[in-house]
Nucleic acid binder design. Structure first.
Lengths: 234, 234
DNA sequence: CGTCATTTTGAAGACTGTCAACGCGCGTGG
DNA sequence: CCACGCGCGTTGACAGTCTTCAAAATGACG
């Protein structure tokens, strides 16, 4: 019944996943070799709210495993426009790049703890350990799948669908039952969904008036009919 | 001076790429081990215009290397809305999935020839050959980078920027100098850019009136100031 | 309790979508 | 050879959604 046991729509098509990939999504499990390796070789670091973990175009020095808190990744245009590509939670791997520079920035939302592993170490391992190389591939493929989902949302859905889909996703990830405590601001949500803060706010208000959600506070949202949210964007 | 030597904006941040990845982008080079492997193990297949190469949610049987023609990949919603995630040209790898089912569909645009390689064979190799595993990772990472670029385009730019960016990308890929011969229809472009065919058509007409392009025919477009297109979405 | 950031709400406007008609190119068949 | 139908693309008028601009309300924090 727990939210974490219900795969988000864009993930449940993975008929078969490596155990490590599953564990990476569900949180720390020191028994699995891949994440155990990360934990062993890495060192803990903490970031305050708003702190940049890494920046776009910077060389990749570390790969991060998120232990606590929340992180968003995004791209910026020179005129300030921002596209938040995703929100990341404990268990997620961050900054895993095949190239040598980061293709996007990562910023802590609220206080965040990570385990940082030297990318060079990880790379070195892939030369000998094909299992690790495949694991990196799986993680990247999952990120790619999410981006396909986001592109569909951004390109072919309206504000109501975008917000619904976002809430459904957060409900799955944040694991608070029907009650969702959002760590990010309206601006962050808007920049993720390709909307403005006003439209996000208005849409949430309309949804509350329509009875599909309840806004305990601006960040604490109760989804009344989760199934309805789930099938929003099949 | 050739278009192929000018990396598109979302690629030129790869400070370092494997040689095979570079060759995969630039077209057939039988000397590189990865593509040579594909050619050796695969068999040629041809598809007519509009033919489905593989469908979303189908099990992954083959991985394809595009030899001739053009292919588009897309996701569909049950109500018919479509998001074209990308257009693919000779040298590109198609249908490379980390999971067991395709996350999107692929359809031939015009007559297309591919080399199909059993995915199981490729997978088997990754267990022993870490180099191949890393190669698959690189290819997936490049696809991911493109999707980030697309998300920024879909989420944070207007019709004019989207079309400009699309034309710049096609000019780079199609390698016809300033003259671009588009293989895809207005509908395909619209579904890629999150617009309607009318908006795409209108935008192109406006660009022609503004002097930035010339429409020799509806599919043959001449870019007058390519640099201007390049920096549209930095 | 005051200040400032965040969020909500309102009104007006812009951009894109929708609906509809027309033009063009092309293959088919009379 | 030309009429016709059909798919594709273009253009116009209008409508709708979302954005922009503005201001009030709420909440966090010293």
């Amino acid at each position: 019944m727990l939210a974490r046991n219900e795969a988000p729509p864009y993930q449940n098509r993975y008929v078969q996943e490596t155990s490590a990939a599953v564990q990476a999504r569900n949180g720390a499990n020191p028994k699995d070799p891949f994440n155990a390796t990360l934990e062993l070789m890495g060192s803990r670091r903490s970031f305050a709210r708003g702190a940049e973990i890494f920046g776009q175009d910077e060389p990749v020095e570390y790969v991060y495993r998120l232990i606590e808190g929340a992180v968003m990744t995004f791209r910026l245009l020179n005129d300030g426009r921002r596209q938040v590509s995703g929100f990341h939670f404990p268990g997620d791997i961050l900054g895993l790049e095949a190239g040598t520079s980061h293709r996007f920035s990562a910023e802590a939302i609220g206080k965040t703890t990570v385990v940082a592993v030297k990318r060079s170490v990880l790379t070195a391992i892939t030369h000998s350990d094909a299992g690790v190389a495949r694991e990196l591939w799986f993680l990247t493929a999952r990120a790619l799948d999410r981006m396909h989902h986001l592109a569909l949302l951004l390109g072919r859905s309206n504000a109501h669908e975008r917000v619904s889909c976002f809430l459904a996703e957060m409900a799955d990830r944040l694991d608070g039952g029907a009650e969702v405590e959002l760590p990010m601001s309206r601006k962050d949500i808007a920049d993720h969904l390709g909307l403005t803060i006003e439209t996000v706010s208005r849409t949430l208000s309309q949804m509350e008036r329509g009875g599909s959600i309840e806004l305990a506070s601006s960040r604490k949202i109760r989804l009344c009919h989760r199934a309805a949210f789930r099938k929003m964007i099949a």
